[in-house]
Design a binder for these strands. Structure first.
Length: 495
RNA sequence: GGGUCGUUAGCUCAGCUGGUAGAGCAGCUGACUCUUAAUCAGCGGGCCACAGGUUCGAUCCCUGUACGACCCA
């Protein structure tokens, strides 16, 4: 970008003008009495006469985002977080020196004001400023006041400008933070202990995904950024922690899309002595609690759909879903040739060497997932694609597992954990064979994890919830980049 | 990885089968003590993403590159 544009040069000149007035353009401590949000909440509806009688003084600070000058007075909008409050700068109230300072103000400057609340004759809540403190000079012009900043690339690369120009963006990230706090509170209140496990792992495990590789010089060891914390959290269950959770970043070396960022935030939690059904109930309750606390409702609108979070949510076995959503004959579940024919009739490209489960999984992903708008637990996933899940007692080809879909997207994945070390060893062997055959997403063989299981892991259920996608749902955002402050982009050309 | 579209002033955008660029906001100067997209008068501001090609002449047509968005894998 142009570093020497006209407006920037003019503002650098203004630094001298400020100094000439004895004003430090980059100030220091300023104690406020109120946040603008609080003032608006408290007095947004207080009547004009009432305000005058109560003579409410305040001291607030913020960035000037609008400025309307008259000869000997001016109105400015001060932005504090996602909220704005108008201030009135009037010569005969401010005094000559402060008014002269006010005439040097630019859009984008930070100021602090002392004054009294009143309502203008157009009934807008406003602070009549008695003392003006210059806090910090902005050297770059702000985006346009009416359209704001819309260029998507600039919004992501210079999120600071996006946050200034688009208060709704600020609000999205406040909601994100509150949602994560809400999850922490909920789990802590339910006896879960927050823990931290390695993000740099010698063997990346816990998910089918390609890892980022790195190297530790002093140890001369290859390490991977984790794709999931799962295997470490289960080691903690082996060690005797009954309920643990971790909220932090996972890294997957895969494509970027509206629902994928290379680093993303995951909640995983593990509960000893519970099964996957308990976790479905917990998930319903957790989402309901978050919706009530953050949205004040049991339903939310997402991209034109009304999503009803009222429990219980539908539970639909995986194979049943494939049959139901495509109105297929049940023989496709047993007969590979029939499944292939059905998939091809649906327009799917079936590889010659695909297994029956592979074909059914293809149908599930292509024809079912995106249609699961209302919250739905798909249960009983095939063992073949669930290498860490406990087998069903009634059918060892299936597992005690679910995935939660809302608005056509996977939001959570949970299961009763496989705690049989010998079965787990076999599953790893199968994965290792797939890896040998060229599947870069297949699980790595983790001998230490098996050793841990051999010490005995109590019956346990565990779940992962994609926090970014959950935030998308709660803030009605279509792209994951709009709920991640600094989404991954190709590096910018040097400035 | 493939396809489609985009990149013009600080921001938001125009720009005619190709003749060296416009608006609004923002900025600067002046007027104005209740405005809120303030108003009025005047004035500046451009490597038209980058590199080639075609042409007397390219913001415009062609090729490539970079970055981004969306769709597909």
């Amino acid at each position: 970008m142009d570093e020497s544009n006209e407006q920037r040069a003019q503002r650098i000149h203004k630094l001298d003008a400020l100094k000439a007035m004895g004003v430090q353009p980059y100030g220091t401590r300023f104690e406020t009495t109120h946040r603008v949000e609080r003032l608006l909440a408290a007095h947004g509806a207080t009547a004009k006469d009432d305000l005058e009688q109560r003579a409410i003084d305040c001291r607030i600070a913020g960035r000037i985002v609008a400025l309307r000058r008259f000869g000997k007075a001016a109105f400015a909008s001060l932005q504090d977080g996602a909220h704005r409050l108008q201030v009135y700068l009037k010569k005969d109230v401010l005094g000559d020196d402060a008014f002269r300072l006010s005439q040097e103000l630019d859009l984008g400057d930070w100021i602090g004001v002392d004054g009294r609340l009143f309502r203008t004759k157009t009934d807008e809540l406003t602070v009549e400023v008695r003392a003006l403190t210059f806090l910090s000079k902005g050297l770059r012009p702000l985006p346009e006041k009416w359209h704001g900043l819309t260029d998507i690339e600039t919004r992501y690369r210079q999120r600071y400008v996006d946050l200034i120009a688009n208060p709704n963006v600020h609000a999205v990230f406040e909601t994100r933070s509150r949602l994560i706090s809400g999850i922490r509170n909920y789990l802590t209140e339910h006896g879960f202990l927050e823990v931290e496990t390695p993000m740099m792992q010698p063997i990346p495990g816990g998910a089918t995904a390609r890892p980022f590789a790195t190297h530790h010089n002093a140890l001369n060891a290859n390490l991977y950024l984790r794709v999931a914390p799962e295997l470490y959290l289960k080691r903690l269950i082996v060690g005797g922690f009954q309920r643990v959770f971790e909220i932090n970043r996972n890294f997957r070396n895969e494509g970027i899309s509206t629902i994928h960022n290379p680093e993303f935030t995951m909640l995983e939690f593990y509960q000893a002595y519970a099964d996957y059904r308990d976790l479905m109930a917990l998930t319903e309750d957790l989402f309901g609690t978050l919706a009530r606390d953050l949205l004040g409702a049991g339903t939310l609108e997402y991209q034109g759909d009304v999503i009803d979070l009222t429990p219980p949510w539908r539970r639909l076995p995986y194979f049943e879903a494939v049959v139901e959503y495509n109105a297929l004959d049940r023989n496709v579940l047993e007969d590979r040739a029939a499944a292939t024919a059905a998939a091809r009739r649906l327009g799917l490209d079936v590889p010659e060497d695909a297994s029956l489960v592979g074909i059914l999984n293809l149908m599930f992903e292509e024809t079912v997932e995106h249609r699961l708008t209302q919250p739905t637990f798909i249960t009983d996933y095939p063992t073949e694609i669930s290498p860490l899940s406990r087998r069903k007692d009634t059918d060892p080809r299936l597992t005690d597992r679910f995935e939660l879909f809302i608005a056509g997207r996977e939001l959570a994945n949970g299961f009763s954990e496989l705690n049989d070390p010998l079965d787990q060893r076999q599953r790893f062997e199968t994965q290792a064979a797939q890896r040998e055959a060229g599947d870069e997403e297949a699980h790595y063989f983790d001998e230490d994890f098996l050793r841990a299981l051999e010490y005995g892991m109590p019956p346990t259920a565990g779940e992962g919830i994609g926090i970014d996608r959950l935030v998308m749902l709660f803030t009605n955002q279509a792209s994951i980049r709009d709920v991640i402050l600094f989404p991954q982009l190709r590096p910018e050309k040097p400035l």
